[in-house]
């Protein structure tokens, strides 16, 4: 009997236990959000701080969650940025209003330290006075001034972000600026 030479048979490829392929729309959303996060997270965080949010990280995270849910209805990245900006403004205003209401029901309300001491430490005295005066302004005036003087937005863009008319933006900006000028004059 002839000795049998075993012919090497290639082993069948072992299928790895990989999870099911993700939904392409879901992958696109994840990638788009990651890109949006990388591009705008820092500026949105700064916007929330300048608007006086006491927990800017949470405000911005909430804004990104809302855009995550409404991703399919977004037109483009430009629209996403404007939507984020508007959402951060609204959420910050709501948060401040909530804190103001909560403070009314507390016997010994804590001092209003909206700008963190760490950030404020970098400011000169006159700048700190100006920022304090800014934080004392009504929310709409503060928003209009920050969007105009920090982000450098045009009136139409500010109006879109705040959900008001251009005329109202002019009014809020002028009143806010007058109040700040008065505060600075009183200090000088």
């Amino acid at each position: 009997m002839r000795p049998r030479h075993p012919i090497p048979v290639p082993e069948p490829p072992v299928e790895e236990l990989t999870p099911a392929p993700p939904d392409p729309a879901e992958s696109a959303r994840e990638a788009g959000l990651a890109r949006l996060f990388e591009q705008h997270y820092a500026s949105m965080l700064r916007l929330a701080v300048l608007l006086g949010a006491d927990d800017p990280e949470n405000v911005v995270a909430e804004a990104y969650y809302q855009i995550y849910r409404k991703w399919r209805r977004l037109r483009d990245t430009e629209a996403a940025e404007a939507y984020l900006r508007s959402t951060v403004c609204n959420l910050t205003r709501m948060r401040i209003r909530h804190l103001q209401v909560a403070r009314k029901h507390v016997e010994n309300p804590p001092e209003e330290t909206v700008v963190s001491a760490e950030s404020a430490a970098l400011l000169r005295d006159d700048q700190r006075v100006l920022i304090d005066a800014l934080q004392q302004l009504p929310a709409r005036q503060r928003e209009a001034l920050v969007l105009r003087h920090w982000l450098g937005l045009k009136e139409g863009e500010i109006a879109a972000a705040m959900g008001i008319s251009s005329g109202s933006v002019k009014t809020h900006t002028a009143r806010g600026l007058a109040a700040l000028t008065q505060a600075m004059e009183a200090r000088r």
Binding site: Y41, P56, V115, A120, L122, Q127, I131, W150, L177
Partner: peptide
């Protein structure tokens, strides 16, 4: 010129305050 001066100072103060804000590295 006071409003102009206030505007300029406000822009500088906002820029200085924003400069001090840093995002956490694992924020995403």
């Amino acid at each position: 010129t006071d409003p102009d001066r206030t505007e300029r100072e406000l822009t500088e103060a906002l820029a200085a305050l924003a400069q001090g804000v840093r995002a956490a590295p694992d924020a995403y």
